[in-house]
Design a protein around this nucleic acid. Structure first.
Length: 264
DNA sequence: ATGGTAGCGTAGCTA
């Protein structure tokens, strides 16, 4: 089973690039974040034409939005809400083989890494706490689960272009890394990407739009993740980061697709 | 020293 995850930054703006990803990688399931569209306007037709006839879309006007597109049928699907908001950041689906798939978009958290003065950062930390508590109480590590998405945190030193310079930059602060680690512990999650790329090696999934030349400066961060629970860890056969997609014409997303293969 | 780009939707928010 091949699962892709991508923060597409508007599914309507980048429909052609989504079709390209489908053609080139042929994933069974695609999880999207930042679809930025209400459900009735989601472009389901062209996706169904390519075999992705099962779609679980969960979007809102202008912001956020997640979707699970699949060639495989869902046994069921659902959404989760966090921090008392209905802001379309978490969808899940039950895939064949008893696999529960979570598609997650964690809040970016604004610019100032202080919850006392920045309510967006406070929201991010609370989101992490609530989701961690839910996973710990409602799920157990013996379940077959996959969690993917834009978690907006780069936890390891080699997940950012400069560990030192980013220690006080939202996405790589110690408090965020600590809370992401607690979430990872909540259901025994395994970091699938780092099963195939050693932690000593740089690995990024996002490069800012604001760089003059993203490729030359290469100031990236690993904000997008693939986690699996222990029963699926042995089934992992590979992970692909489509770095080249950062340069896709005519208009790339600032995130690139991550693809995981499972022998199930 | 603090701007730089992108999307939505048509001003300003969010990333």
């Amino acid at each position: 089973m091949r699962i892709a995850t991508w923060n597409i930054n508007s599914v309507r703006m980048r429909l052609d690039l989504l079709l390209r990803l489908m053609e080139e990688e042929s994933p069974d399931v695609i999880c999207l974040q930042e679809t930025k569209v209400v459900d009735p306007d989601f472009p389901l037709g062209p996706l169904a034409e390519r075999g992705y006839v099962h779609a679980h879309v969960h979007g809102m006007k202008s912001y956020n939005g997640v979707a699970i597109l699949s060639r495989l049928p869902f046994e069921s699907h659902d959404v989760q809400h966090w921090c008392g908001k209905q802001d379309c950041r978490h969808a899940l689906a039950h895939l064949p083989g008893g696999i529960e798939l979570h598609c997650v978009y964690i809040p970016a958290g604004g610019d100032i890494p202080d919850p006392a003065v920045n309510e967006k950062f406070a929201h991010k930390l609370q989101f992490l706490d609530e989701m961690t508590h839910w996973l710990r109480t409602e799920r157990t590590p013996d379940r077959r689960m996959v969690l993917v998405g834009d978690l907006n945190i780069a936890p390891l030193e080699q997940d950012v272009w400069s560990h030192k310079e980013l220690l006080s930059v939202v996405s790589h602060t110690p408090i965020e890394v600590e809370k992401l680690s607690a979430m990872q512990d909540s259901a025994g999650w395994v970091d699938a990407m780092r099963r195939f790329v050693p932690p000593s090696e740089k690995l990024y999934t996002w490069w800012s739009y604001r760089a003059k030349d993203w490729e030359a400066s290469n100031r990236g961060r690993r904000l997008d993740h693939v986690w699996v629970t222990p029963p699926l860890a042995g089934a992992l056969t590979g992970v692909t980061v489509r770095r080249d997609a950062r340069g896709w014409e005519p208009k790339p997303s600032d995130h690139v697709p991550v693809i995981v293969d499972l022998d199930v």
